[in-house]
Design a binder for these strands. Sequence first.
DNA 1: CCAATAGTGTCTGTGAGACAGTATCCG
DNA 2: CGGATACTGTCTCACAGACACTATTGG
Lengths: 233, 233
Amino acid sequence: MTDREHLWLRLAVDLVILTVRDGQLQVLVIERANDPYQGRMALPGGFLRAGEDLRQAAERELVEETSLDGAVLHLEQLATYGAPDRDPRGRVVSVAYLAIAPDLPIPTAGSDASRACWAPVEDVRDDLAFDHNQILRDAVERARTRLEFTTLATVFCGPTFTVGDLRHVYEVVWDVTLDPRNFSRKVVQTPGFIEPTGTRRIPPTGRPAALYRRGSAEALHPPILRASPGTDG
Amino acid sequence: MTDREHLWLRLAVDLVILTVRDGQLQVLVIERANDPYQGRMALPGGFLRAGEDLRQAAERELVEETSLDGAVLHLEQLATYGAPDRDPRGRVVSVAYLAIAPDLPIPTAGSDASRACWAPVEDVRDDLAFDHNQILRDAVERARTRLEFTTLATVFCGPTFTVGDLRHVYEVVWDVTLDPRNFSRKVVQTPGFIEPTGTRRIPPTGRPAALYRRGSAEALHPPILRASPGTDG
DNA sequence: CCAATAGTGTCTGTGAGACAGTATCCG
DNA sequence: CGGATACTGTCTCACAGACACTATTGG
């Protein structure tokens, strides 16, 4: 019964990589090639290795799956999931990380045999393996909250972007429509949120928009609060 | 080298139990009786057991250390700490939980040989074993944020409390002074925050104050935002 | 009466939301 | 010129903070 006091287990690190593509919030998923849940969609992840920090493991998985530099991207710990029966192979506790990426040209330059692809969150939110549906739900809610209180929305965009691009991120992630004029005033007035680059982008139609880059601020004071506290299933 | 792919480790669950006592934010700490960091202060915790969920383990530790029912108290997962060298005994990853308790008469009715006691956060914030200083910092910051956006402050109080008691919680946790009149209006007007019991409490001096119990709401709309974004080390 | 705490009413500045109006591109 | 998008100005309402004032106890 010393086993009760000293349970040995394996620790997995799973990734929820979110982006905004084609006007939708999308998540990077893989199709499982092996044993449990074979053929099912799942979040990318892997086991923690010796000598590795949790964040290091998350960054390593991120590179393996998307060829993205985890040290540059936004990457934050989400939560840890440890229900005894969450993995049929045995006791596996999973630390989930939330990553935010701009719209990448091709997601899967990975080396793994498993195919990786972007999928709209709405399309896969109930079809993932393990307890990944719950993890994805928690990740989306975290991202929505981060948009309220931090400058995270700029990470969804590329290195330079217009105020309209930034507004588009908010509208897609929150699933709302925002007044472009009020949003512009709000964002420009918030110190450290965005910095003008001096250049402009000429759209197919309409007046050219000023291009910005992300500012130095991390937190938003005051925050951009959502009107309704998100009551969508 | 299969060891690199399948690292086995032990998972600990550590608790940050906060309360407001004697006008200070205090945390429950134990004095370590055994091997690493013997005699040093540390957060209470223990290893995950077979068949146990993470939250179950946290509730079990909570009962062992404080004889409090973890199912009733506020208990939320804080974060997971997994630096390779965080525990001299070997690879141990720790899932930290944040618990909020009202001012208890005696903290240590626990069975463990280790002595448990309340200590002001300020007094122990740099003297804890392992990486518990960092965990404590994160926990306090989480609690401060929770007070802004949830009705968590009522959990610091007993089953019934006055508006002044509730204000006292905010003032101690945030380390600020609040206008009693504005605070009262704000709290009473927020639907679901507090419910009148119809009874009153007679203080040593002054007008009797109405007693309330916690309301049904969990989230605060709108939130009670701190003025300054906490720049204390 | 005074001291002390509880609670109400009022003013003011700030910011969000609504929306008219102006600016600048393409065709 | 019209169509479309970017951006500015103005109004209104709600709320946070400051603070005068009233209410209710004990001594």
